[in-house]
Design a protein around this nucleic acid. Structure first.
Lengths: 230, 230
DNA sequence: CGCATGCTTGACGCTCCTCAAGATGTGTGG
DNA sequence: CCACACATCTTGAGGAGCGTCAAGCATGCG
């Protein structure tokens, strides 16, 4: 992979869709800047350090040999990742936007690390429940809700303004995260838009109009009890 | 829930299908014996101790409010569970057969605990990949392969004998684990049987006839490359 | 023996995937 | 400024895989 060094200011000043060119990482002290669609570490890499995402958006992915891809987690600012050094970590990490990443070595407080691991585990379990037992609409609602939490912008008046966030994932990414296809993701998002639960004009900037309804859909429809065979 | 105390010998001598009656747990020092289909701890319980499964089979489950259930992991002898005390552990644990469980308090070596957590996380990620991206046949093959690893019986001649294990899960449990229905699980198991990959006469005792083929199916068919849109 | 539970098997239907075309937006070059 | 290429998103039509429903079978227990 090509590595071109350049001042971090210049990199940050690049247009937001200067994607695809793997010129990163840039080193800034112990910080590195990754450009969109670049790999932070690989699926089969061992001895990966602990990272903290300062800014941006990172996906943890696992690929089957035949090319099927599953996104295992979406990491937002502040979260730790690459927590696994004892064994193979078995999943890779890639930046979805310009992402500033801080390498922490092993100097991390054990309590913090445990907490991060437990959060990781809980999120993995939530994802499994989503993938195993939720419908397409519920999955997409869950994803939007989760991303709104992780990426919502600061607002001067959070009471009045509808929470808005930058959807760093493409429809394809969402599909790989939610176990769906591009088309199904698109249909569900537009359904949510028609239902006035969310809104977007650019496909990347999403406003949540009705958080309660979104959360209700994410948790499983309108609370109706599903039938279960005896 | 009913709790009846009885000597552990008597309990162990019960016929294997003495199921459904929640008379446990029995205390044996720091060990407890749980009978089939009994809860070890609940989904919303906090401050759960760390457990080691001495013998038997335990399922970690998460239920949605409307009754849909997802099994998040199947625990075999030797493994630790209930590792999460900082936050809500958000999933419950129940015994699937007579299960002897050792409560470890917090005296566990930190390294061991980390290792167990990491294994848990890796397994959760594998499950997510399975649920998000594998077909029904692949899921069932993966499950059989995993259970064979965790529950295969000691054999005098492992070279010659086909590895055999007790399938402690019902078809319904398998369905809740693999994101499938009872019927689909049954169809896939019988397909594997017709294909001479596995064999069973009792629906609970499974022999693996062709480990390689099983593993190949679990990993994703015959290695054919799936198409991906550009 | 009758009942209960779990497993199997078949017919049918729905959700979501597949395939295909068109829309939208964005950068490039004339 | 407009035409063009390219990538992503949207939308529709049709099909496949797995879910749903229903019946029958096997086993075990009272």
């Amino acid at each position: 992979m090509l590595n071109i060094s350049m001042p971090v200011e210049a990199a940050l000043a690049l247009p937001p869709n200067f994607a695809g060119l793997p010129f990163s990482p840039l080193f800034v002290g112990r910080r590195r800047l990754f450009s969109p669609r670049t790999t932070i570490y690989d699926q089969d890499e061992t001895a990966v350090p602990i990272y903290r995402l300062v800014d941006g958006c990172v996906a943890l992915t696992h690929s089957l040999r035949d090319g099927r891809r599953q996104i295992l987690d979406i990491i937002g600012p502040g979260r730790l990742f690459g927590l696994v050094f004892h064994e193979d970590n078995h999943c890779g990490a890639q930046a979805l936007t310009f992402s500033q990443v801080e390498s922490l070595g092993r100097t991390v407080d054990q309590g913090i690390l445990d907490q991060a691991l437990v959060q990781m585990l809980n999120r993995a379990h939530s994802l499994a429940t989503l993938l195993g037992r939720k419908t397409a609409m519920e999955r997409v609602s869950s994803a939007v809700f989760d991303l709104a939490q992780q990426f919502k912008r600061a607002s001067r008046n959070p009471q009045r303004d509808a929470p808005t966030f930058n959807l760093h994932l493409t429809r394809a990414d969402l599909g790989d995260w939610l176990g769906l296809t591009i088309e199904t993701v698109s249909r569900c998002l537009n359904q949510l838009k028609r239902d006035k639960v969310i809104d977007f004009s650019h496909p990347e900037i999403v406003r949540v109009l009705d958080t309660d309804r979104l959360q209700a859909m994410a948790a499983g429809g309108r609370g109706e009890v599903r039938k279960r065979r005896a």
